[in-house]
Design a protein around this nucleic acid. Structure first.
Lengths: 98, 98
DNA sequence: TCGGTCGCTACGAAAACCGTAGCGCGAGAT
DNA sequence: ATCTCGCGCTACGGTTTTCGTAGCGACCGA
């Protein structure tokens, strides 16, 4: 009840690792190669990126594609759940400045 | 254009730190004291929890309350955006097992 | 064969995180 | 006034994660 045995907490733990959310976000609108993904994420170190990719792949969220890496069907679903964060973040950016 | 100058990427960076999402999640249904929050998060070390709390406080997502820490109005909005993750995670948990 | 790009690994330095102990403070009881 | 208790939070040493850079082997077009 308190532990991460609940699915959502496992998910929160997975997403709460550096670059994971960002990778998901960048892959939302189409596949990217390893290097392109790396640059899209502002130049993460390849070791970390590879670790994240492996985790997401094992989680069934990301999969290999001809064009590089792509979100799976499940991953696309998850990506869409992340979408409203954009609107929220825009409103959020207008804090303490008016 | 590529960097985290875009609001959503700042947000993704904020949320992509260990325990941040979890803290948000645990605070969704009511305020918690520091120690209660700590236990709800499976016993995070207080130094890290304090850092996360400070970050979220500065971001205007979390605020001090009589009962401990509580989500701000904005924070509650963000918390609701996280809500569908629960349903997704449940479906996700039924992978590779049926 | 050569140049270019691909996914990915190696490895030392730096930063983040963990676990435990405990401080200073305010409230309630004696 | 003192004692006690739980509170938010800090200190600190050890472990893990992340970073930054360099580069390997494979593939492909010229």
């Amino acid at each position: 009840m308190t532990t991460s045995r609940q699915p959502v907490m496992r998910l929160l733990d997975l997403l709460g690792r550096r670059w994971t959310l960002r990778v998901l976000w960048e892959l939302r609108d189409g596949p990217l190669t390893f290097r392109a993904l790396r640059e899209a994420c502002g130049g993460v170190s390849p070791s970390v990126l590879n670790a994240r990719v492996a985790e997401l792949r094992e989680a069934g969220v990301l999969e290999d594609a001809a064009e590089g890496y792509a979100l799976s069907a499940r991953g696309r679903e998850l990506g869409e759940l992340l979408l409203p964060l954009d609107a929220w973040a825009r409103r959020w950016a207008r804090r303490s400045s008016g």
